[in-house]
């Protein structure tokens, strides 16, 4: 696995109209597939094998971030969140403001002499963004976007930590899969959808799955990984393989096929049972047009929606292997 590609995808930004990560995915996928861009939805990459059936694989490219709502003066900005935000982690967090140029900025932390109750979490209405540039209004306007700024770091074992691994790891798996299968004889025509706007309500997948004529689909996303203070019943363990989604909104046939492949090929797999919606693109792909039989694979991830997300790269290999076998016609 080329972790440099994961690093590029993680550090790049895809938020609102900023398409850095999407452009990286596009240039990678163009090596193996016919790629078309669909404005709001993202990218659709097709590998046509002249087969009767088509499999749609989806991962979302967008990330959580912020948007400037007011210039406060003296270099300070007020922002709102774009997608889910964990306000607990904001003080002293470093971000990039995408104005006329890119500016580094930092969320203000409360000075010790002003901290009345250190236990309270401040929301975005009470915490300002500091650019350190007193006439910042010359370079930044309301509506400009703000992204987390951090490196991808290797941890012990096979784990890495960085921003936007939700869902760049999914995008990474699909690019790596395309590289491995584009010249193979497959059971399916393959469509890879790199969809936008997931964090704002699965928006990209609605339109991208409408654009595709697919018989089956699998969404690749992330889910909750294990850690202290987290019930092991509610999460997957990092390094123990992908989490197979099991839910009434998902197709039982696709799900069973993935399960059987894992058994046949000795690919580690864990299960994530949900009583209804999965809060992933699978929710909307499954009801696109007359319906697409849809499954879900999730990569366990810690510290979701923070700049310190953690995944185990072994789990990425598990996802790629499962999908590879699926495309070759496994699981019957």
């Amino acid at each position: 696995m080329d972790l440099r590609l994961l690093e590029k995808l993680s550090c790049a930004v895809s938020l609102g109209h900023i398409d850095e990560a999407r452009n990286i995915a596009k240039s990678e996928l163009e090596k193996y597939a016919e790629v078309a861009e669909f404005g709001q939805c993202g990218l659709i990459a097709k590998i046509d094998k002249g087969k009767d059936k088509t499999l749609l694989l989806d991962a979302h490219i967008d990330e959580v971030g912020f948007i400037v709502t007011k210039i406060l003066g003296d270099g300070f900005l007020r922002v709102a969140s774009v997608g889910g935000c964990d306000a607990r982690i904001l003080p002293a967090t470093v971000v990039t403001v995408h104005g006329k140029e890119k500016f580094t900025a930092v969320f203000a932390s409360t000075p010790p002499h002003l901290a009345e109750d250190k236990k309270d979490v401040k929301g975005l209405d009470d915490i300002v963004l500091d650019t350190g540039i007193s006439d910042i209004e010359r370079y930044v306007s309301c509506g400009d976007l703000v992204s987390y700024k951090t490196d991808l770091c290797r941890l012990d074992g096979n784990k890495v930590s960085g921003k936007s691994l939700d869902d760049r790891v999914g995008v990474f798996c699909l690019i790596e899969l395309a590289r491995r299968v584009y010249d193979k004889d497959l059971e399916y025509n393959l469509i890879i959808s790199i969809s936008d706007g997931e964090e704002l309500g699965l928006r990209g997948a609605v339109t991208s799955s409408f654009e595709c004529e697919a018989d089956e689909a699998i969404a690749i996303d992330v889910s909750f990984g294990d850690g202290p203070n987290i019930s092991s019943e509610k999460c997957g363990k990092l390094g123990n393989g992908a989490m197979l989604g099991i839910s009434p909104v998902l197709d039982r046939g696709v799900t069973e096929k993935l399960k059987k492949i894992a058994g046949d090929k000795n690919i580690p797999l864990q299960f994530e049972v949900m009583g209804g919606k999965t809060s992933t693109d699978a929710d909307v792909i499954s009801v696109s047009k007359s319906g697409i039989k849809t499954g879900l694979l999730s990569i366990p991830l810690r510290n979701m929606h923070t700049p310190a997300e953690v995944v185990d790269t072994h789990d990425l290999e598990g996802v790629i292997s499962l999908l590879y076998e699926y495309l070759l016609g496994g699981g019957k």
Binding site: G84, C85, D86, S161, F224, G227, I230, N303, H305, A308
Partner: peptide
């Protein structure tokens, strides 16, 4: 990384 329970 200093980890914690996810906000969700």
């Amino acid at each position: 990384v200093v980890g914690m329970k996810p906000v969700h």
